[in-house]
């Protein structure tokens, strides 16, 4: 049987959902793979929703909002874009194809464009094949990675940076200065990498307690990097030493939040 991808679309009420309705009114046909979830604004879409959707086996996630300038809530769509940017970087870390998540703008009068975009996305995902974590035998590594990514998307630091991006880049920071976009991007991608690694460590230690050396092996990271992260995570109260085996401390994760 030919592969029929499962696609979830998150659409804003005012433009893209209206565009989807217009495709219907105009009887423009497109593949039936998409399941649409209506939200009031694309800015509502928490990165967590998208990761959750992917973790639950969606082969693709299509986020749609109003064209820049058209947003019913002034700039909600631009916030959606910032989150999508962060998410693309994060998904890239997990080994899942980042193109499984896609953001597009559709206006209320673009029924044909909506149908076209859905068709293109469906084709692209069909070519890409089933999500490695869907089906009977999900790729455990990627699934684990996505679970770490999901935790990462909920990380305080990351959310603060993304949440403040517009303020810092377009308006001013606490010193009355503008933060250059490149600088913020750099900081963000660094934060993504670090927090993602930490969450992988955390998730691993949730299952079993491990040593630095063992973690280093499993995560394909230098022992030094692992240790640096462990130090921070211990300080944050995320990890504790379960026991010491000979000269080797064995770490475990602690309940947080």
């Amino acid at each position: 049987m030919e592969f029929e991808p499962k696609i979830v679309g998150f659409l804003c009420n005012w433009c893209s959902y209206a565009g989807a309705d217009l495709a219907g009114v105009s009887r423009i046909q497109y593949p039936p793979n998409i399941r649409i979830v209506r939200v009031m604004c694309s800015g509502r879409i928490d990165p967590d929703f998208i990761l959750e959707t992917l973790i639950h086996g969606a082969d693709g996630v299509l986020v749609m909002g109003c064209h820049p300038g058209d947003c019913h809530y002034i700039e909600g769509n631009l916030h959606a874009e910032r989150k999508a940017k962060m998410l693309r970087n994060l998904i890239a870390e997990t080994g899942l194809e980042p193109e499984r998540m896609h953001l597009e703008w559709v206006s209320a009068s673009e029924g044909a464009r909506f149908a076209q975009l859905v068709k293109e996305f469906t084709d692209r995902i069909t070519k890409l094949g089933p999500s490695p974590i869907s089906g009977e035998n999900p790729n455990k590594v990627i699934l684990e990675n996505l679970l770490a990514a999901k935790r990462t998307a909920g990380d305080f630091r990351l959310r603060v940076i993304v949440g403040r991006e517009r303020e810092l880049v377009e308006d001013k920071n606490a010193y009355g200065e503008k933060v250059p976009q490149e600088k913020l991007d750099e900081l963000l991608s660094e934060a993504i990498k670090t927090e993602y690694t930490r969450n992988r460590i955390y998730n691993m230690l949730e299952k079993e307690s491990l040593s630095v050396r063992e973690l280093s092996k499993r995560l394909d990271l230098s022992t030094q990097d692992v240790l640096t992260n462990i130090v921070v995570m211990r300080k944050k109260g995320m990890l504790g030493v379960e026991r010491i085996e000979g000269t080797t401390p064995i770490y475990m994760s602690l309940e947080v939040r």
């Binding site: 939200v39 009031m40 604004c41 800015g43 509502r44 879409i45 928490d46 990165p47 967590d48 929703f49 019913h72 809530y73 909600g76 916030h79 989150k83 909920g154 990380d155 305080f156 630091r157 990351l158 959310r159 603060v160 993304v162 949440g163």
Partner: peptide
Amino acid sequence: KGCGVCGSACPTGAISMLHFTD
């Protein structure tokens, strides 16, 4: 106005967007 931008940005999950909750 209920757009939910604050909720999807809140770093601690303290804000929920009613009728479109997480």
